[in-house]
Design a protein around this nucleic acid. Sequence first.
RNA 1: GGAGCGGUAGCUCAGCCGGUAGAGCAGCUGACUUUUAAUCAGUUGGUCAUGGGUUCGAAUCCCGUCCGCUCCA
Length: 496
Amino acid sequence: MTEILDENHIIAERRQKLSDIRKSRVAYSNHFKPTHKSHLIHSQYGELNGEELVQKEITVSIAGRMMLKRIMGKASFATINDGTSKIQVYVSKEKIGEAVYDEFKHFDIGDIIGAHGTLFRTKTNELSISVTKIELLSKSLRPLPEKFHGLTDQEQCYRQRHLDLIMNEESKNLFIKRSQIIHSIRDTMVRESYLEVETPMMHSIPGGATAKPFITHHNALDMQLFLRIAPELYLKRLIVGGMDRVFEINRNFRNEGLSTRHNPEFTMMEFYESYADYKRMMEITEQIIRKAALDSVGKLVISYQGREVDLAKDFDRLTIVESIIKYNPEFSTTQLNDIDFLRQTLTKLTRKAPSDNESLGVLQLLLFEENTEAKLWQPTYIIDYPIDSSPLARQSDSNPLITERFELFVVGRELANGYSELNDPEDQAERFKKQVAQIESGNDEAMHYDADYIRALEYGMPHTGGCGIGIDRLVMLLTDAASIRDVIFFPQMRAI
RNA sequence: GGAGCGGUAGCUCAGCCGGUAGAGCAGCUGACUUUUAAUCAGUUGGUCAUGGGUUCGAAUCCCGUCCGCUCCA
């Protein structure tokens, strides 16, 4: 239906060309074997001058998409992009014969073509291929966006990423960088003797984070399943099992709103290390991020949305209260330890009173989220999270109200979250019970009681440090992307 | 959920205090044997996102809806 509606004269003409091809040969043949890649031609022969090229008679076959075509009577130029870079081909009637040349004249921009010939330099000294054979490999039926302005419509870039990748080199380079970043992270983890593992994406009890899950159903087992919101509880089962350093890079799913920082499916790396604590996790997180920056951007002082970010210096470490005061000097420590003051301030800021029985620590955290988080531009670890908002983190030995937990903020966004893991099964059972009480009082994001996980802890889990890093957000930071949609190939869009 | 901005040819965009829907690129026809967004001449192509309203007359003004972007909650 949409096919027919989309049809216009440009497509109709191209279909006619395709139909003519079908009359004489296999239209989408697969025999052509390119021998060279454009970027290697440029790097290997880019230094040779015209005479040297003529002498060496370097013969190449390349295949790629025709991006530009300039026909000048009996000879023409075309620009081909073979996925590595662009290269110009020179096509003359004299060299390829009248019949093929006439065919070539009707090739369309966007067609995938194969060309064979020898390297030479044009009058303007551009390394080019003088073609002796040329053929159409894949007919393109739809016209590409305009050659000069390309594709700028963001919606089209997201909905038709293939077009974005064809037309916008920056976009393609960004995704190459994304791959480099992930490769770099893997490299760091493996070098630190971590084992890469995979744990279930479908959970019968959603756990490991406070978030709304997507719900699905398994027919044969006739059971409800949830797409995972975090892999944490499974990775820690592996720690119980003696896999003492594990990491997983994979998708999490959260049934929440979309924004420039949120996509319903997003990529996280979580890693767990036995006999380590949250301080070691902060150190290795810093190390991972620096290495990723060096491997992708090539430097540690980077620019994000026009402002400098210094990844070289030791990341700042502040408690919640310290950070509020540092970035909001109008507050005093006394005020920030006064429940009534915090309640009043929050009510003023959010135009809504916080719920009744929130603890001092949670109120401080709420205020932090309100007036400090967005100001943490340079990398900053916030530490000592209140125990009631950290049901999987180990309690501090010196202060029972806080946990050995940190979150890392860069450019005003949460980038990582880690802690010394709670390995006391009885404490964990109590924490789950408190979460269940919250569910019962209407908090649909609180955690469920996971008896199977408690049972695993009861076999004994070594003390462990764990951390999760938001990969999409890290990629945003290192590629200077303003929206998470720019770093995910196919971001979630509304159906049209 | 609220606010602002946007949706016109395949693409990039004009047109918007109402009066026959335009350009460039792409396509088609022709000229052209070293072009670089090639050039030159001619030419095809539109449910102006969508539904209603106001009006003699709506791409343009008003209301609703859909889609997107940004900001706020």
